[in-house]
Amino acid sequence: MESARHVFRVLFLLLVVVVIFSVGRTFLVPKSYGAYGPYRFDNVAEQAAVRPPQHGGSASCGACHAERLKAVTAGAHRKVGCEVCHAPLARHVRDGARSAPMPVDRSFTLCARCHRRIEGRPAAFPQIVLAQHQGGVEGTACIDCHEPHSPKL
């Protein structure tokens, strides 16, 4: 035993390190960690409040634009939400009041995203082949002839 004193010394030193680490560690574990599993539970609430919702849905647009919404919901675009072609509500309304003008995209590209005939779309979906389309020239705005909110086919 006498000749193994240095072994005990080094083992004691090791023990001290382990204890310091274990104690120090407890101060570093976040409070809500492990409440429901191996994660910080507080983060769930943080995620729920990470930012206010940007998209409001068509109903929220109808709060101010009731007539427009009525027209849309009666027509062929009734399933297309306002924010699909315009922009998220949050860009236009803040704290219940108008904060900026809603962008209006009158371009051919906007309509083409859905209605240009390309490989991939379901056959039954209304699509346009420009070359076969009356007066259709790339660059002409579709909405010159078609009413975007309630288009007639």
């Binding site: 574990v29 976040p30 809500s32 960690y33 409440a35 769930v44």
Partner: peptide
């Protein structure tokens, strides 16, 4: 986690 002083069970309220 438990050994390190288990956190008090938070409320189920996430929002």
């Amino acid at each position: 986690v438990f050994l390190s002083g288990a956190p008090a069970l938070g409320e189920d309220h996430v929002a």
